[in-house]
């Protein structure tokens, strides 16, 4: 009987001194891959304008029908994006989303990125439909507005500096 006890303890002790495989989530988080696909984000250019132009290509690429985009015309005096068009509504149902990344791939301006963020649990379905107010990033990237793509319209200069110094020249 003692023999059996020793055999059992041996297994226990062997595992006791092994390196730990669990982590103390949420204090500690597992490292994610570079290409991890978390929730969406809509980025900004270096001059502060939104990169999204409301083209709806993400919507049509989405295999889960999770994305709805509605576009509108920019007010030249107070533009949201560099071109004529911006997304006044950009909505994703994160419960429907399968995080396949097709939307990111379809985006012609590189506005849409799937971030590393994966902690999306919530208590209602409605709160998991995220709109542009949550998705548009409040950070600028260092990507300049591509000059060749966005010409002036109705007097609006897409390259106009929204904050001096933040603006870079596009590849002509």
């Amino acid at each position: 009987m003692l023999k059996e006890l020793v055999i059992g303890l041996e297994t226990t002790l062997k595992n006791f001194f092994r390196p730990k495989v669990t982590i103390a989530y949420p204090e500690e988080k597992k490292p994610r891959s570079e290409r991890f696909r978390g929730r969406h984000e809509l980025r900004r250019y270096a001059n502060g304008l939104e990169m999204c132009i409301g083209c709806e290509l993400c919507q049509v690429a989405c295999p889960a029908n999770a994305i709805t985009v509605q576009a509108a015309e920019n007010d030249p005096a107070n533009p949201r994006s560099p071109g004529e068009r911006y997304a006044y509504e950009w909505r994703v149902d994160l419960l429907r989303c399968i995080f396949c990344g097709f939307c990111e791939e379809a985006c012609p301006t590189g506005a849409l990125r799937l971030t590393q963020e994966f902690e999306l649990a919530d208590v209602t379905r409605q709160s998991l439909v995220w709109g542009r107010e949550k998705l548009v990033s409040d950070q600028r990237t260092d990507i300049p507005v591509p000059e060749a793509v966005y010409p002036e319209f109705r007097g609006h200069q897409p390259l106009a500096v929204i904050q001096p110094g933040a603006q870079g020249r596009g590849e002509a």
Partner: peptide, 11 residues
């Protein structure tokens, strides 16, 4: 011809 098909209504 500009390549602005993504924002063009005709696209």
């Amino acid at each position: 011809h500009p390549l602005d098909c993504p924002v063009c209504d005709k696209g």
